[in-house]
């Protein structure tokens, strides 16, 4: 029974990673930039949701939508102000800017409200469902459901809509896409909007599930989500999903074996192994990097 319980634990942890990784993988897929600030948009989403629920006393779903909308705007602003100028700059310059944006968001939040943690109010009735001695929290089922729905929605957007087609074109070759009459700037902004909205949603759900939110909460989940995205194959939406769930399960197994202190190390070891052995990830296409 213990191991089934552990699997359930791993999947609920993994679906949070997957949710963040979905946005990560989209942004990376289109502009090839590790958006360090993604984890911080996730944090902002959590705080927006918190203030919406605790201060303005609105329900969970309206708060989720507000957080997603505001995060989408924030994501577009970040892209327009900081990243847009850097499209033709070196990778290093872009990455340093991303780190700078990430530090800026964290410290501005700390400046305005301090670094102390905040506890999410209980918005969803949380019950533990006991099936044959395995406890499953109702919220973790919700998270998994939301993640799967969003994944399907994303798959639909990317593969069946016009904007999705534009996204795929830009990610393949921005210059050729521009020649074909695609508005590259708007497409990239749209990608950021969607990715950041997902991060915002993940933030609210994280807050509801784990209760504790704080200004630096996005750093580690952000990195883990990136690992998940790499694991699944950067740019691949089902890959991000599978990568996130696998990472959650792996971490849980490491803890369950009694090595809980090595959990974060395990995630990074996975990252390094994947990068060295199969940089394209599970679902990634084998493309040789252009230089």
């Amino acid at each position: 029974m213990e191991w089934i319980q552990q699997l359930v634990n791993g999947i609920s942890l993994g679906s949070i990673y997957a949710l963040i990784a979905l946005g990560y993988t989209m942004v990376y897929g289109i502009i090839k930039l590790i958006n360090f600030a993604h984890g911080d948009v996730f944090m902002l989403g959590a705080f927006i949701g918190f203030y919406a629920i605790a201060r303005w006393e609105i329900g969970f779903f309206p708060a989720l939508i507000i957080a997603m909308a505001l995060c989408a705007i924030i994501g577009v602003v970040i892209e327009r102000v900081a990243y847009k100028r850097l499209r033709n700059a070196t990778r290093i310059a872009a990455l340093i800017t991303a780190i700078g944006v990430s530090l800026l968001i964290e410290n501005v939040v700390i400046y305005f409200r301090g670094a102390s943690p905040e506890a999410y109010p209980e918005v969803l009735p949380e019950t533990s469902i006991n099936i044959l001695g395995v406890n499953i929290s109702s919220i973790s089922i919700l998270i998994l459901a939301v993640t799967i729905v969003l994944m399907i929605l994303l798959q639909f957007i990317v593969h069946k809509t016009k904007i999705g087609k534009a996204m795929r074109a830009v990610s393949l070759d921005p210059d050729a896409a521009r020649l074909m009459g695609i508005n590259v700037d708007n497409t990239i902004s749209a990608t950021f909007a969607i990715g950041s909205a997902l991060a915002g949603a993940a933030g609210v759900i994280f807050g509801v599930y784990y209760t504790r939110i704080e200004p630096l909460m996005g750093v580690l989940p952000g990195l883990k989500a990136f690992i998940a995205a790499v694991f699944g194959g950067i740019g691949s939406i089902p890959g991000a999903m599978v990568g996130g769930l696998s990472l959650g399960v792996v971490e849980t197994v490491v803890s369950a074996l009694g090595f809980s202190l090595w959990r974060d190390a395990a995630a990074f070891v996975i990252l390094i192994l994947i990068l060295i052995l199969k940089p394209s990830g599970i679902f990634g296409k084998n493309t040789r990097e252009k230089v």
């Binding site: 213990e2 319980q5 552990q6 634990n9 791993g10 609920s12 942890l13 994280f206 784990y210 504790r212 630096l216 909460m217 580690l220 971490e251 849980t252 197994v253 803890s255 369950a256 009694g258 809980s260 202190l261 959990r263 974060d264």
Partner: peptide, 20 residues
């Protein structure tokens, strides 16, 4: 006898171990 690291948010796997 188990341990966790500060800033963790998910303790369920180790708690499951303890529970057993």
């Amino acid at each position: 006898e188990e341990a966790y690291v500060a800033d963790d948010t998910d303790f369920k796997s180790t708690l499951t171990r303890i529970k057993s």
